[in-house]
Write a protein that binds this DNA or RNA. Structure first.
Lengths: 137, 137
DNA sequence: CTGTAGGGCTAGGGTTGA
DNA sequence: TTCAACCCTAGCCCTACA
């Protein structure tokens, strides 16, 4: 806990993947220095890249049980498919757990635009001020 | 299947609170390895300590973690307060580095509330603003 | 000193059994 | 349904090593 966690955006992840394709895994500093990615990954360190890559691969291999659960839950939680008209809705039951998430290894760094203006949160090194407003009934 | 639930004893809880006072919140592994508490908390993991501390604090302010979560969501879903209403501006200047976290407002006694001087709490009829400054090195 | 690899830790969301 | 206890893991830190 030093600074609030900075979650990886899809754009950053894509840039990392493209960087690994271009320079190879383990060349974190090189990827960071590459002008093709340096702007997107400006806020990340080489160690961050390494850690994120590790998470990506771990997730890809997966024998995780929670993710399977989540996938199942997600499926169950889906509202009945809303088709345009009035027709019987058929609920589908997915039984496979081995699919999920095709990982695009080579995502070109096209013009992915940030979902929003990801403002750069200032990250203090040894101080954090939390303000939370909580409403209750 | 898993281990049966191991309820926290009063002694364990006291040790945890003392550990937080001594080492600070978030230093779960440190508390665990402190000879002063290691014997009492022998059967607990660092994650257990973290979870228990969360329950203690959440219970002290609210009735439950669920309510807190709901309240938070409710808060996030609310549009920004309009000018007409309660516009609060809070500023705080910090200079010291030697303080360490200000969380132990949930010490055993029956009379909680009246947080210490490091934390300010403003209460409205159905609204609470929490401000906490956390220092660390 | 710089960078990488890998183990470890915490925060926070999620799950579960009583 | 509620909630204390417990699980899962992204992100970040620490240390060894080259």
């Amino acid at each position: 806990m030093g600074a609030p966690k900075q979650k990886w955006t899809a754009e950053e992840e894509a840039a990392l993947k493209a960087g690994v394709v271009k320079h190879g895994s383990g060349k974190w500093r090189t990827i960071l220095t590459d002008p093709e990615f340096s702007s997107i990954l400006r806020t990340r360190s080489n160690v961050d890249l390494k850690d994120k890559w590790r998470n990506i691969n771990v997730t890809a291999v997966w024998g995780s049980r929670q993710k399977a659960k989540l996938a199942l839950k997600k499926n169950l939680a889906l509202p009945a498919p809303k088709t345009n008209n009035n027709q019987l809705t058929v609920s589908k039951v997915v039984q496979r757990e081995d699919i999920l998430d095709v990982k695009p290894l080579a995502v070109s760094s096209g013009t992915l635009h940030s979902p929003n203006s990801k403002e750069q949160v200032s990250r203090f090194k040894n101080f954090q001020l939390n303000i939370s407003a909580i409403y209750y009934q």
